[in-house]
Write a protein that binds this DNA or RNA. Structure first.
Lengths: 170, 170
DNA sequence: CCGATATGTTTTAAGCATAAAATAAATGGC
DNA sequence: GCCATTTATTTTATGCTTAAAACATATCGG
């Protein structure tokens, strides 16, 4: 009899009570805190050491791997930012001589941006420091920690993409 | 003899070549991508479903756990944002009736902000949806994945704090 | 009590980010 | 060849974020 009461209670709970997802919430908050801590440190050090901002660093990082440059749209897609965002960012980097911006020979709507030799030099210097900063911040993780993180984050990435796609297509 | 040559080479490498930290870099980029994906989804859904922004949601989340409210400084510290950031944010939420802002009885410099009953109601409704969204995005992770993540991120948090503190005090 | 110092808040200037509207050019179907 | 649609980019309006300066008030040591 108690069994049935318990069973009813459990069933009632499952039907009425919203599922509890506090653990997932805590996990998300911890992930966000970590990302923000690392990012804030990188921003501060980029500013203090090189008088540079993270968005500009990120932009140059994408172009460093594309010797012939790329269009603004392609760049926006790789950086996962909006197109409009790039206009001012690129403008600034062209001004200081780190970037060139030229019309595409094959499409008169498109502009192709690329690093100048000086821009590439400046980026490589920052990238070296950046890599050391990241490694330092991660020095508290052993090989297994890193492998666990990499694996679980890979799954989270897919899972989140899948969930986000429900909103409105790809 | 070869040994000595190899040893010299290895030593030379250790001295000249910068240590390689590509794995840590990749891990950081994956972590950042995950955080950005989740955050972008939450922002979009908060906007679409409740016409609300993430910073305002975060602010209300802090106040929801403080029945008597708190000072702006305390709020800024808990939210890990600058004091100046809050001025406009709070102003907006007071305007729409979600928050009260009253001078502290014990300190004439300080203001105490708190949720109004309506603000709390509005927040709770959003928080329920928010929790489901997060759980959905994490549904691709099994219990071990979540435990691994939680543990490794805990270590990353400490490690990053330690590294960041080298910059200038606490 | 008073001045030095610390703390709480707001203001300012600058930059980043987005969505949506506006252009401009390319492409595809007929 | 021409029109509808798509794609590349810029502009606009709005909001978040910070660091630094400016105030106001508090606190502490003498």
């Amino acid at each position: 009899m108690n069994d049935s009461v318990v069973a009813l209670d459990a069933e009632a709970k499952a039907l009425e009570a919203p599922a509890d997802h506090k653990d997932e919430l805590r996990l998300w908050l911890r992930l966000l805190t970590c990302a923000n801590l690392v990012e804030a440190t990188v921003r501060r050090r980029l500013r203090d050491s090189f008088d540079e901002t993270l968005p500009r660093f990120d932009l140059m990082a994408q172009l460093d791997r594309a010797p012939d440059g790329m269009t603004l749209s392609e760049l926006a897609q790789r950086m996962m930012v909006s197109n409009g965002n790039l206009t001012a960012l690129v403008e600034r980097l062209v001004e200081v001589g780190h970037l060139t911006r030229a019309p595409s020979p094959s499409d008169r709507r498109a502009q192709i941006v690329a690093l100048t030799p000086g821009g590439r030099r400046a980026f490589r210097k920052m990238a070296g420091a950046h890599e050391d900063w990241i490694a330092d911040m991660m020095s508290g993780l052993n090989a297994k920690d890193q492998a666990d993180l990499m694996r679980a984050l890979g799954k989270l990435k897919s899972s989140t993409r899948r969930a986000a796609e429900k909103d409105s297509g790809t």
